[in-house]
Nucleic acid binder design. Structure first.
Lengths: 220, 220
DNA sequence: GTCTATAGCCAGATAGAC
DNA sequence: GTCTATCTGGCTATAGAC
């Protein structure tokens, strides 16, 4: 938007550019609408139940238009995951700008943020058992680069927390990472929310506690 | 099989019974084959990716024969879950015959058993987001009775463990129950197994530890 | 690029002979 | 009850007009 206004203040040769930029802007807005529709649908009903017809309806366009932007349903899922990973990376980078915070607390903040996203219906989750989809994602460089980048950044904190005895060092660091990813789409959050008895804040607090402190009572 | 041999030793009136019983036995064997095929397929590829054609092939019969025993794909899933719940109830009842064991240790044993089942490819899991399937299960009395029975039995231990300060009493008992069910199909188990670096025993130990003791290092 | 209309396919479910 | 063969509906993906 800002870019479009800037370019549009120029002359006639530039009119072509402005028109192009305008079209590009429209394209981008429509792609955003698609990806956000996919994100919501993945969060609410899951990949298999989501249809491209629903995506088109939710994004306010015809199905064929969706396919002009994305070649397949799997690419739609990939685009939504890329955007979700970007949100996660932005949050992590914000945390990294506060290097004084203990590594364990950074990890807790990430877990909390992920579960908050899930409560807000903004955390897409994909079936880990769909092999075709998994293969498509693993061939998606935009997706893999972000996934590896996020994993690396989290692994730094995990290693720090383990060497400083904030996190159980007898657990493999790889497993800590898996658990953090798994808790981001933990069905327990949804079940507690569905029960309707608890506030979001209670749910966040309890799930974070059970993840980092466990179910067992801690010795005083 | 044993019953068939017993009945078959009788006379001619009984021959009819024997023939009926034989047929009934055959029916039961075939239904068993179906349900176990569904169980394996649910554990390996999930409900949405599982096709009734695969079920029939795995059970060694034609698809139409599967539909003579079960009216729909959803009923197939229900039958597999009923059988899984029966296995869980049998294990829990065995544990209950040792009332001297602390409630917390009983719960740990159940969690460990569930994850062992998952490692063995015997723990079916269903998509919690498929509303049609959820509705079908909630209308399935055989399923609901067992689910409630299992929940009740686990809840007794949960309450005991909380009142005796073995489990964090500030967490809702309902949530402890949800976490136990969720860990039974925790994707972390499958990810660790897929990495190929760890033994089943290590995986069981680590996941149990992280569930009950948490990720954080415990004060010595 | 956007739309309407449709092709193509696959999977759940059934018909009908045996 | 079991089978082969088929129906049916819905979903991914595309053709073709504008």
């Amino acid at each position: 938007m800002y870019l479009w206004v800037f370019v549009a203040t120029r002359g006639s040769t530039i009119d072509t550019m402005a028109r192009l930029s305008y079209k590009e802007q429209v394209q981008r807005v429509r792609e955003d609408a698609i990806v956000e529709a996919v994100n919501r649908l993945l969060a609410s009903k899951g990949y298999d139940s989501m249809t491209v017809d629903e995506v088109a309806a939710e994004a306010g366009m015809a199905k064929a238009s969706v396919y002009k932007h994305f070649a397949s349903k799997e690419e739609l899922a990939g685009a939504a995951m890329v955007r979700a990973l970007d949100r996660a990376l932005a949050f992590v980078d914000e945390l990294r700008s506060h290097p004084d915070v203990a590594a364990l607390d950074q990890l807790k903040a990430v877990a909390r943020w992920a579960m908050q996203s899930q409560l807000d219906g903004e955390m897409p989750s994909l079936p880990s058992q769909n092999s075709s989809l998994t293969a498509s994602l693993q061939a998606n460089d935009e997706y893999m680069d972000r996934l590896i980048s996020l994993s690396n950044k989290l692994s730094i904190w995990i290693t720090q927390a383990q060497t400083s005895a904030q996190i159980n060092a007898s657990l493999p660091a790889e497993m800590i990472l898996y658990i953090l990813f798994a808790r981001a789409c933990d069905p327990v959050v949804g079940m507690l929310k569905a029960s309707g008895q608890y506030t979001n804040e209670q749910i966040l607090e309890w799930v974070t506690t059970s993840t980092f402190e466990g179910l067992g009572a801690r010795p005083q």
